[in-house]
Design a protein around this nucleic acid. Structure first.
Lengths: 208, 208, 208, 208
DNA sequence: GATGAATGAGAATTCATTCAT
DNA sequence: CATGAATGAATTCTCATTCAT
């Protein structure tokens, strides 16, 4: 077998393991992942895993950072909109929500993973997180821009980003858990989410 | 021993088991609950559990529906405020958030439980849910009142209730998972949550 | 089954496990001891061990302290001999050597065990050990007495005790390893050991 | 590549494997030696070992008999001292003890190896061994010379050699096992060992 | 009503070894 | 000559559950 062929084969089995792991996590949650389950599915001996990965943790971490990257990609493709940052933010969240829902079980598994390694990457609420997390930074920047332009209410942009994010997150998780939500209802919810975020529910005095 | 006495004793041990299970879940999370841990704590043999419960799952389910009741209690104690429904809603959420955070591990276990039995009770997003779920009904009513009184923006009150609920839910879950959020930061986030819900982030044209 | 009967049965199985473990250690060394080997021998499932013992370590520790106790017993039965401490010391070593050889494999396993828990109990060479180890204390005291009485060469009694002990130890270990030493040769070696030791520490009449 | 060149290369890798194995044993003890550890260190695949050695055991045995040779070398370099054989013997033991301690893990592995092949080489206690083992022969001869010269107490020189050897052995093994012995205490112990040994076998002036 | 005994299944790893290439 | 793939057998330990008593 040629070297490329061999490397190819190797990569194939690595991917087989990763894919199987991902499927198990999607189906049963990350805590249900076990080496045995993986290898039973692909009809190999459990020891084979240690041929391709250091340990179970390496697999989880690979899957996590992969999922993380996918989510980042969803957001970073958004077009800058200098004049109307709300349009930009809307696009971010539409992308994010649609994307998360499209690989929902994985999203659920990772974002709700209590593992401290995973948590490091998914932290959102800490003060100053907008300097660390690319997602929150992107949001915070857009909000700050909106404030600067006099389009958004003045205030702490990071806090606003955090609430917008956790609110979207809550909606996504609920949609994932409640499996039978119709497409139509889903869209109405997303629309309402955006409406409230941008306008709130209160009619302000000045408006009267 | 009289029959009542016996029944009483029986009830006592059942409660002992349930209470211990609840403590373990609160401390270490639901996935750390094991029959052995329960019975070691109360100094009984593991087998005793099967005298009082079908299996481990029954215990978890009981705990979950109990937690559900407690959450409902948190909300239903809120004082009606006819003139300013937003005050009422604010109180609902403050109660709800504080309450959920005060027994956080239980809340997490309960609300993120994938079991279909449990899901029936925690459903929130379905259209028409405001006629079924007391929580959402309460919220929807208050919002409807606000709209009627011309204080809230017109629109679908149920949808608004759902978004407000899922948004609070997302914030709560994130606070629970990211263990090291300071009390101060927590309060700032809750405050910002309420501010956005009520006012949104956008400065509306009419306000200029 | 009566309570005593039950307790008896329990004790029986505990002992069965311990005895089997001891046999394995004697045959194959302490590092070859495994839960599976024990339970395969006694035809039980591996899990049973954890019914009777916390973990594998507890078994080893029990066996070790048991062996330790046995050795201590060998020595502590020795009669004090105030006028001629050398007689007393001789008896100590005769007892010790004979005793160690009578459960030789166990002695070997434990005394050569590199496990730090075990080492704590079998330490001999540290300065000041005569205040800790009963064995060395007993020896040191007797030697000190001999020095005081003008029968032994003056010097550091603890050091002397340590060398006498390690020398006996070396002899014992070698006898155990070289399985085919005849009874006669064994006795000649022990005799020679004592002869060298004593003529070494004893001040002979002519020197006075 | 020429045949010699090839053989040379082959020998080189063999030695690389052996050297690495020796290092692992010295560092972590013989029971920690594993094929994987060897080959990971030298950046080869585990399978390579089976090209050069039958199995893991062959490696250990080679290492052991090599260690034996090294110990022999330590002793055989000692200078003959016709007039004062005790000086010669002292040098032998000082060399032996220092040498053994300088590659302690190997010494331990070697001397405590229960393998019958190895035991043949390390036997010491059999009657008549002084005609077979070079070490004991060397010692016995020196002692015999001492007796002949009227400097040592008359008696069976082989037995004396055996006791001197096993006593040194016991001290060495204990020093190796009890890892934290200070250099100072070590030297005191060795000194005491020699003092006891010699005052034991030496006929002192007063006795003449 | 209570429990001790017992287990089968499963968890993650590690290891020496074989074999086709 | 060298190796990557693969495995079977071990290792310790945990757990939910059953059952005879």
């Amino acid at each position: 077998m040629s070297k490329e062929r061999q490397a190819h084969k190797r990569e194939e089995i690595r991917n087989l393991i990763l894919t199987t792991a991902r499927e198990i996590i999607s189906r049963d949650g990350v805590q249900a992942l076990s080496i045995r389950k993986i290898t039973k599915t692909i009809d190999y001996s459990p020891a084979i895993v240690y041929h391709y990965f250091k340990d179970k943790n390496e697999i989880i971490e690979l899957l996590v950072s992969d999922g993380y990257k996918r989510i980042l990609d969803l957001i970073s493709k958004v077009n800058k909109n200098e004049d109307e940052p709300e349009k930009e933010i809307e696009e971010v969240f539409l992308n994010y929500i649609e994307g998360a829902l499209s690989f929902s079980e994985e999203y659920k598994a990772f974002i709700l993973n209590g593992d401290s390694e995973v948590l490091k990457k998914t932290t959102v609420l800490k003060e100053g997180i907008s300097k660390i997390s690319p997602t929150i930074k992107l949001l915070t920047d857009a909000i700050q821009r909106g404030i600067g332009k006099g389009r958004f209410m003045p205030g702490n942009a990071e806090l606003t980003a955090q609430i917008m994010w956790t609110s979207a997150f809550g909606l996504i998780i609920k949609i994932i858990f409640e499996k039978n939500i119709s497409e139509q209802q889903k869209n109405r919810l997303i629309e309402q989410y955006l409406k409230i975020m941008f306008n709130g529910i209160l009619i302000r005095k000045e408006e009267k």
